[in-house]
Nucleic acid binder design. Sequence first.
DNA 1: CTATTAAGGTCAAAGAAAGTCAAAATAATC
DNA 2: GATTATTTTGACTTTCTTTGACCTTAATAG
Lengths: 157, 157
Amino acid sequence: MSVLSNSIEQFIKELMEQSGEVSLQRNELAQHFACAPSQINYVLATRFTLDQGYVIVSKRGGGGYIHVRRLECDGENLLYEYACNQIGGQLPKSKAHAMIERLKGENIINEREGNLLRAAVDACAMPMETQGEGLRARMLRDMLTTLITAIDPCEEE
Amino acid sequence: MSVLSNSIEQFIKELMEQSGEVSLQRNELAQHFACAPSQINYVLATRFTLDQGYVIVSKRGGGGYIHVRRLECDGENLLYEYACNQIGGQLPKSKAHAMIERLKGENIINEREGNLLRAAVDACAMPMETQGEGLRARMLRDMLTTLITAIDPCEEE
DNA sequence: CTATTAAGGTCAAAGAAAGTCAAAATAATC
DNA sequence: GATTATTTTGACTTTCTTTGACCTTAATAG
C-alpha cells in the first residue's frame, strides 16, 4: 500500500500544517522521494485541486517555485460552489450574468467587481462561439477562484 | 526570493524610495552584486519598464550613468491612457501584467481587482488562437473602461 | 584632431527551474 | 484472468535568469 503519491501528499500536507501554505522546489522534493519530478505534478494535479480546496501558483526558470495554499472556506461559500460545481465546460452568457447578479446580491462582490466580471464575460462572446463558451467558463471560474483566494473581503469600510 | 534579479530590483527601489528617482553607475552596481554588468540591464528591462511606470535615461562614455525615475500619475488619466492609447489590437500577456501592476502600484485598483484582471487576462492565453491577443486586448480594454465609468473609487481597508 | 579610456548597450548561449504528455508499470475491479 | 483505472517515469517543451563576448558612445589627454 506504499503508494508514493500518498507519501508525497502527506508530506506536503504536513508542511502546510501551521500556516496553511507552503512553497516547494519541485526538483528538490522529487529528489527527496527519489522519483521523477513530474511525479510531483501528478500529486498536485490529483490531490491538491481546487475541488479539494487548494490553489497552486508556480513560476518557472531560475528561482522558480511551486506555491500551494489551502483555502479555508466552508462549502457553503457561494463563490466556491460556483467555481467548483456550477461552472462546467460551457457557460452561456445568461447564466454567467445570473451568477454575477447573485454574488452582488449576497454582497460577496461589490459593484465594481461585478462590472469587471461582466465586462470580461461579455468580451468572450465575439469569436467563433464554439470555443467561446469554453473560454468564458474557464475565465469566470478562474476569476471567482481568485476571489476565494483573496484574504481580505470585498467590503470597503 | 534568493534570486539575484529580485535583490537588485529591491535595492534599486529602496534607493528610489524618497525622491522617486535614482542615478546609478552600472558597473559599480554590478560589482556590488558581483554579477555581470548586463545583469543590471536585464533587471531594468524586466522590472522597470515604461508599462510598469518607470522611465530610464542613460548616457554612455566617461561620466556615464543610468537614471531611473518613477512616474506618478492621476488615476483617471492612467486608466484613460491605457484604455484609449496603450491597448491596441494585440496585447502580449507580459504587457497586460505590467499594466495591472502599475494600476495597483498607483492605488487605482486594489489587490482583489488586480487578481480579477490578471485571471481574465491569463485565461485568454490558453487556446492556440492567433487572435487570442486580440481578444485579450479587447477584454482588458473593456474592463478598464468599466473602471473609468464607475463613480466610486476603489477604497481598501 | 586623434587615440585612449571609460562608461553603457546588445544579443545570443548556457543554466535553472517548472510544465506537458503519453507510454509503461501497477493496482483494482469484475 | 481480463479489463479498467491509477501511478510512475522519461523525453521534450516553455519560461525565466545569468553570463560573456563584442559593439557604441562620450570625455579627455596628447
